[in-house]
Design a binder for these strands. Structure first.
Lengths: 333, 333
DNA sequence: ATGAAAGCGCTAACAA
DNA sequence: TTGTTAGCGCTTTCAT
């Protein structure tokens, strides 16, 4: 910038004003400076600028990974929502700093924000970190979490209506004439917990008693989930339906059921969750609970922006709906 | 930092030295400073630090989106490789700045690097920007592109062996007894171009003449591709196999073929490309060309690091292999 | 082992 | 309309 100033025969302030579109500069001066900048292939140093301005238009997006399963979260849902968030952020002129952190060291995620790399944090998946998150909120860290709304929650969440999702899926299975409905998902995660409550309620509404033996707490990581799922369906031949907490898990269930010699959907109905591309193209095409990914991304960013503007933001629960496809078709006759 | 210095009764220089692990500080002083920092919940301001040091450990990753199809690239392959890159970068202590830019304004992508937000650029998809990319390379911008190696290429690419992929898939279809093999993909993209050359070669090797009428140049965006694919298979009932350039396109082809009353794989064999989760769980499970995503991410980052270290980096082509599943099974008998 | 001081590239009073 | 100046938070000579 100093070079340009010298070459244009003006001061750096003037150059700064030009490059920032200040209305206080002479048209002729501006032209000269802009030309010079272009020809020197100069662009303003944003690091210095945001340092000086103490301003920051970068949002950190953190996707925790599961150390238990010793492998990264490849669930298409997480990747998809990250893509959607990237679009929303881009549209609003924000940068997105993406990182993955060990789900057991979530505090690491905050460093970026504390250290001034980002102005706020979007956490994709609340995992089992309710307390840590509450602490953050208490420290007024601008953070919005994709997840479930919990009692005594100080932080802001945006999430799908998990209770409704579980209810919808299970009720649908019951209406298809099923009675022994297995539940696949780790209820230590709040979202899964709520889905299970919906599942329970649908059962009770139909006069059925939830059976703990039919609940299999598996991780979202398909590699880790495969063996337990196979063992489960080999052992539980009385199962006539499955409510899985992700499309991938549902597909794994189908696979295991078929390996155990059971036919889907004729003998066993299966529902997935999320409604990713996989579900539509799966074998069979999955009946699944649709989560509104694009709206979710928009809502997450909105919430963070409000928070940054100093407003207090209430948790938001987005509606979900059931998409009926082949995997839950009632056997005809 | 000034606060800490005052409270510890030392100078800011000393505090700086402590926090950066300099060996020149008294153990007792260090202890006091570190304690203070912890209790004040202080972390160093990275913006200021990297500004001062003129250093930057952020890599920009850009996923172009296609404006033609008026919609964002949701192809699972792109999202998956982004996730893998995030992991690699995290492991090496780099941050990842993710953005999406209009494929027709790729120059925008560079701004971030030029402006000092990032120290280098990873571009996922070279699209039709060979010339632009060459220009960048000439300007010594540290950029590595996921894509195909082209003649007279000045920039560094890392990519799968597209020629081999096209050859492998097509040869497999021919061995399954197919003769009228359609090709789905937009050959304006270099990667697709190479796959088509492989496809042509396999045909010629078998004494078959490539038929331009069987090539359908569709976008990777499934929404944009659906209608042309349906029209194509409704019109070309002589087709007995399909080599698609992504798993999603392959599944769309299956869908269209079935809608046109043709059975897959009994009557028509189909191969996909990429080997995403979708392929394994699809209807039917897809025979597809496996792309080594994790290795690719590693290689992309490696290449960029070497480049940053001032080395000249040669383009790299990663081996691919065919995964045979149900969609190409030869009709028995 | 520690402190004083300069300066990274930029912006915003304030003065002219 | 433009220039002068101070300073954002940090690191790093150079003294001490």
């Amino acid at each position: 910038m100093a070079d340009i100033a010298r070459m244009a025969g003006v001061s750096v302030s003037t150059v700064s004003r030009c490059l920032n579109g200040s209305p206080l500069v002479n048209a002729e001066t501006r032209r000269r400076v802009e030309e010079l900048a272009k020809s020197l292939n100069y662009t303003i140093n944003l690091g210095a600028k945001s340092f000086r301005l103490q301003e920051n238009r970068t949002v950190a997006v953190v996707v925790p990974y599961d150390r238990d399963s010793r492998q990264h979260i490849s669930d298409p849902f997480f990747l998809t929502i990250v893509g959607a968030i990237a679009d929303v952020l881009t549209a609003r002129g924000f940068d997105m700093l993406l990182s993955r952190v060990d789900a057991d060291h979530l505090d690491q995620a905050m460093r970026g924000v504390e250290m001034g790399k980002a102005c706020g944090l979007l956490l994709i998946g609340q995992w089992r970190h309710h307390d840590q998150l509450n602490e953050l909120a208490a420290r007024h860290m601008p953070v919005v979490v994709w997840g479930a709304e919990l009692p005594q929650q100080l932080y802001c969440t945006v999430g799908g209506d998990n209770h409704a999702g579980g209810l919808l899926a299970t009720r649908h299975l019951i209406e298809a004439g099923r009675r022994r409905i297995a539940f696949l998902g780790d209820a230590r995660l709040p979202e899964v917990l709520h889905r299970r409550q919906g599942y329970w309620q649908a059962l009770r509404d139909a006069g059925l008693a939830p059976d703990p033996a039919l609940e299999l707490p598996v991780s979202f990581a398909p590699a880790a989930a495969r063996a337990p799922i196979e063992a489960f369906f080999a052992a539980h031949r009385e199962v006539d339906a499955v409510m899985a907490c992700s499309d991938l898990l549902a597909l794994e269930a189908v696979r295991a059921l078929r390996a155990a010699g059971r036919s889907v959907p004729a003998e066993v109905s299966v529902t997935g969750y999320d409604d990713m591309a996989l579900a539509a193209y799966g074998t069979p095409a999955l009946t699944t609970v649709h989560q509104p990914v694009a709206e979710a991304a928009e809502a997450l960013v909105d919430a963070l922006m409000q928070m940054l503007a100093g407003e207090r933001v209430a948790p938001l629960t987005l509606p979900v709906h059931l998409v009926v496809r082949d995997s839950s078709l009632r056997a005809t006759g």
